[in-house]
């Protein structure tokens, strides 16, 4: 990186600003600085309130949908429906 280019990444010595959503724990000097969350993590974090059981049910429904699709596609491919 040249001298003229601005490094927009947070400096490791600067403390990260406190999050508006949850209080950040006090850091010790030896700990790695917290990193800003990536878009995929921010997307995944939206589901934090969703219980795992509900996610399991959703995955189960998708698998059932897959099986139904294969059966329907088979019937359609063989001109049964």
């Amino acid at each position: 990186m040249s001298m003229d280019e601005k490094d927009t990444r947070p400096s490791p010595e600067e403390p990260m600003p406190p999050s508006a959503e949850s209080p950040e724990p006090q850091e010790s000097p030896d700990e790695a600085p917290p990193r800003p969350k990536r878009p995929i993590e921010r997307f995944y974090d939206k589901f934090e309130g969703v219980p795992l059981k509900a996610l399991d049910i959703f995955i189960g429904i998708l698998i059932a949908a897959f099986i139904i699709l294969v059966v329907l596609g088979y019937l359609k491919g063989h001109e049964i429906i």
Partner: peptide, 23 residues
């Protein structure tokens, strides 16, 4: 091999992708 209609094949592949991300 099962002779599944090609349109349904695409949908099934899409569902598998969503299941992968959900997992």
């Amino acid at each position: 091999f099962l002779g599944v209609d090609p349109a349904y094949t695409f949908i099934a592949q899409g569902v598998v992708i969503i299941v992968a991300v959900a997992l």
